[in-house]
């Protein structure tokens, strides 16, 4: 069944999540409702503690909500995880130091039982996607931080998941590398037509990348604004100086500030 355009792949309805900690329960998510359509690039932005990462982990089935409903590809999040519906990119590349870059990308393929030939084909294909074709035989320590993170994106793309969940993947990189990776990520998204959920705390990054920006605020973690971006799909880096871009960035900033006024 081919996913039709604009069909909803991730749907959260009145999602609640409370962590029981030793001193007091922490209300990480409160009444979060959001639909993400096939092919969307959705950014979650907000200060730390606003639940953006927690929400992403709920979608991934790594956390279990304490209330509300959440479907991914029409299944529960945990079923979707078991069906390997998504690739997850963490804040750190987390490559195995004892495996080569190609070996690291093979890891999910080995676990999912792809044949040796299929593994090699896919590794070559995703290495090409992230422009690391010449580095398959290198070890992680031989690559820069940005290249390592690209390798971890390749690892998440190696199997056929239509959804890519990214948790501040470029948070630890410097601004120049980050700009470059943002450009590459957009190109990759355009080529693969994946649905991407992207957590960040950088306003320019969120505005530059997204078709939809979700602004969140803390205590309790909740959505304060959802902005549909009017920017075209083709986005050169200098689009960031355009009036539309500045206007959206302004609205995001306003949304973040509004969330803080409640404190």
């Amino acid at each position: 069944m081919a996913p039709n355009a604009n069909s909803i792949v991730i749907s959260a309805n009145a999602l609640d999540l409370t962590f029981q900690t030793a001193d007091a329960p922490v209300h990480a998510l409160k009444d979060v409702s959001l639909d993400i359509s096939q092919g969307d690039f959705v950014s979650f932005i907000g200060p730390s503690g606003c639940g953006k990462t927690t929400f992403l982990r709920c979608i991934a089935g790594l956390e279990t909500p304490t209330g509300g409903t959440l479907t991914v590809n029409g299944m529960t999040a945990d079923e979707a995880r078991r069906a390997r519906a998504y690739g997850y990119v963490f804040q750190a590349a987390g490559l195995y130091p004892w495996r080569t870059i190609a070996g690291n990308i093979k890891l999910p393929l080995e676990i999912m039982g792809y044949s040796r030939a299929e593994q090699n084909d896919r590794v070559a294909r995703v290495l090409d996607l992230v422009e690391l074709s010449d580095f398959g035989a290198k070890f992680p320590w031989q690559l820069s931080g940005g290249m390592q993170q690209r390798a971890s994106i390749a690892r998440a793309l190696a199997f056929d998941a239509d959804i890519l969940l990214m948790d501040e993947p470029f948070g630890a990189l410097d601004e120049i590398v980050r700009d470059h990776l943002n450009e590459q990520l957009l190109a990759l998204w355009a080529r693969t037509n994946k649905t991407i959920a992207f957590v960040t705390h950088s306003i320019p990054e969120a505005v530059y990348l997204s078709t939809k920006i979700v602004v969140m605020s803390p205590r309790p973690g909740r959505i304060t604004d959802v902005i549909e971006s009017p920017l075209p799909k083709e986005r050169p880096l200098d689009i960031r100086d355009s009036p539309e871009f500045i206007e959206i960035a302004h609205r995001v900033r306003e949304g973040l500030r509004a969330g803080h006024e409640d404190d």
Partner: peptide
Amino acid sequence: MQLDLLKTYNASQNQ
């Protein structure tokens, strides 16, 4: 994080 990564692949305890 590395254990979570394996969980996203739905890897078995053996794997």
